[in-house]
């Protein structure tokens, strides 16, 4: 739980995420998704309670956790004055990926996301979609067990969104665990094996999209979401 600056952003929640599943966290603004996400990715520490990621405790083994996870941040977070390849090499080097393996992976992933012809271009000149595709492969260059995705398709065109979903599916088939936060119910419904719905720092529901819809007698996840979190607009 995080109680920084007197606001309890996340309060008394407990859940397990299984190896190999695609897990979604959804909730209105201020629900505590970002704080939970930041705690799971070791960016902030909980003020009480404990979190284990890949079997390691975030309080004592943050570095080991960072070796096992990859993060696709909300912002593209790429160095605009480095080329696409240099950005990937930087990440590979920080994860201590051997040079030969890193070069092979870089070539493979650049091709996978159709950026192989742009590898030597500075990313400052990339479109939003290109940046996001590069951002995704930057997060997997060290072959992580778990990939965290923070609202990965926000602001993207439908084609890029589809491409990101495809990539997520591919990584999951390879055995990686995927953890998403998203504002798009369609995304959660389509991609996730299980969805956690958060509201005001608490976990209000956790189940498969199908079960959540059945439980609320709804045809889509958006109705479930409104039903569980209310219609009130959040700050």
């Amino acid at each position: 739980m995080s109680r920084r600056t007197k606001i309890t952003a996340v309060d008394n929640i407990s859940f397990d995420i299984y190896r190999g599943e695609i897990f979604g966290m959804i909730g209105p603004n201020g629900a505590g998704k970002s704080t939970t996400f930041a705690m799971m990715t070791t960016l902030i520490k909980p003020t009480s309670g404990s979190i284990k990621v890949a079997g390691f405790d975030i309080e004592n083994d943050a570095e080991k956790i960072r070796e096992k996870i990859g993060v696709v941040p909300q912002q593209h977070s790429l160095y605009s004055d480095l080329t696409a390849r240099e950005n990937l090499e930087l990440m590979g080097n920080l994860y201590d990926v051997p040079k030969k393996i890193m070069d092979e992976r870089i070539d493979y992933y650049l091709k996978l996301v159709n950026l192989e012809t742009h590898s030597e271009r500075y990313t400052g000149g990339f479109s939003g979609g290109m940046k996001q595709r590069l951002s995704v492969i930057s997060a997997v260059i060290h072959d992580p067990e778990i990939i965290f995705w923070d609202e990965p398709t926000t602001g993207l065109d439908p084609q890029t969104r589809q491409a990101i979903w495809k990539l997520a599916g591919k990584f999951n088939k390879e055995g990686k665990t995927l953890i998403f936060t998203t504002h798009y119910m369609e995304e959660a419904d389509k991609l996730c094996d299980r969805v956690a719905i958060m509201n005001s720092g608490k976990l209000v529901a956790l189940d498969t999209p199908e079960n959540l819809k059945k439980m609320s007698n709804s045809t889509n996840l958006e109705e479930v979401f409104i039903h569980l979190t209310g219609e009130e607009i959040r700050d």
Binding site: E63, R66, I69, P73, Q75, H76, S77, D96
Partner: peptide
């Protein structure tokens, strides 16, 4: 501002 430091801090680097 551009979020790159956060990405770096989520790698094993201290």
């Amino acid at each position: 501002e551009d979020g790159t430091i956060v990405r770096i801090l989520m790698t094993p680097i201290s």
